[in-house]
Amino acid sequence: MKNIRNIISGMLALLFVTTILGSCQTDDYLVDGGKSNPYYDGTIMEYLESRDDMLFSDLVKVIKMTKWYDVFSDENADVTFFAPTDFSIDKSVDMLNYYLYNWNNMEKITDLSQVKSEVWEDMIGMYVLKGKYRLNDIAQIDTVALSTFPGQTNYTYDKKYKLTMGVCYGDANGIKYAGYRQIMCANQDYGISIYAYVSSCNIEPRNGIVHVLRLDHSLGFTPYALYSKAMEAGIDYPDDTWQGGVPLTGKREDSNNMLIINKESNE
């Protein structure tokens, strides 16, 4: 599954670039560019499950382990979901496995269910807001002029996190803020703002709004978040798997891999 995702990631990235430049300029654009009806005749959960392009297959598996399955299936939910793709989950799981194997002397996970359901529930909760927020409902943000255009900050659905969201206005023909518009969101719980950009916006199932995050986003807003939360909760290994747990004094893999991980984490 992951190899197939790597093959199509370039194609999807190209499609999302098109979407970034055009999908959020009006209310009637749907995913992957192309003007279309933004409404989906079903729930948020049904929308995620309906996608056959492997953007949300792992996301759906994760959601089904948590209370968010019931929320997203509720016809009266009235929520906004900044949906991370499977690529976001892959990035964070890769970081989790790297640190498990190299720094904790523990086996890598081979199934998403080995991460406890409360960890997935907590992390998905970072992206869920009560109420429907379409592009036109969100305040302008300019990350280099936050005193003037700060966006807006809301508590997440379960009031556990603060999520800042805003609409970035591009320039056009030398006129500031006259160009395309793009939604972004930021987590405020790490001491600094970590931004995530939306590639497809204003998708509207019956019970809420979905904004799809860009492929380069890491679940939890930083690749380290899943590792930290999963280790704190404990990993569910099969009974016949040795868990280890004693930190190694050295690394099992070459330093080049660590440099790659660090570069991705910094970005």
Rank of each mutant, 00 (worst) to 15 (best):
I7N: 06
G244W: 00
M126V: 07
D90K: 08
V79H: 03
Y161D: 02
K2Q: 06
P223F: 05
S73A: 14
K263L: 05
A178Q: 12
G191I: 05
V210N: 06
K2S: 01
D32C: 07
K132W: 08
N207Y: 12
S255V: 07
F56P: 00
S265T: 10
L48M: 10
D78C: 14
V210R: 04
D189P: 01
V17R: 11
R5C: 01
Y127I: 14
L30C: 12
E264M: 11
E267M: 05
I89W: 03
D27A: 15
K130S: 14
G33C: 08
D254G: 03
G151M: 04
A139H: 02
K160V: 05
T156E: 06
D32A: 13
D216H: 06
F149Q: 01
D41I: 10
I7Q: 11
N207C: 13
S147T: 08
E49N: 11
Q25N: 15
F82A: 08
Y47T: 03
D239V: 11
V119H: 09
V212Q: 10
M45G: 06
T43S: 15
E46A: 14
L12S: 02
Y169F: 07
A77M: 14
Q182F: 05
F221I: 04
L248C: 15
I8D: 03
V93S: 03
D94Q: 14
C24K: 07
S147K: 07
S73E: 02
E267P: 01
E46H: 12
F81E: 03
L129S: 02
S113V: 14
L259I: 02
G191R: 05
Y127Q: 05
Y157H: 15
A230N: 09
S193N: 07
Q25S: 13
A196R: 00
L215P: 01
S228E: 12
V60D: 01
S36K: 12
R214W: 05
N262P: 01
H211K: 08
V167L: 03
Y190H: 10
Y227T: 09
K263N: 08
S218Q: 06
T19P: 01
L59M: 07
L129A: 03
V79P: 08
N262I: 04
G250N: 15
Y29K: 06
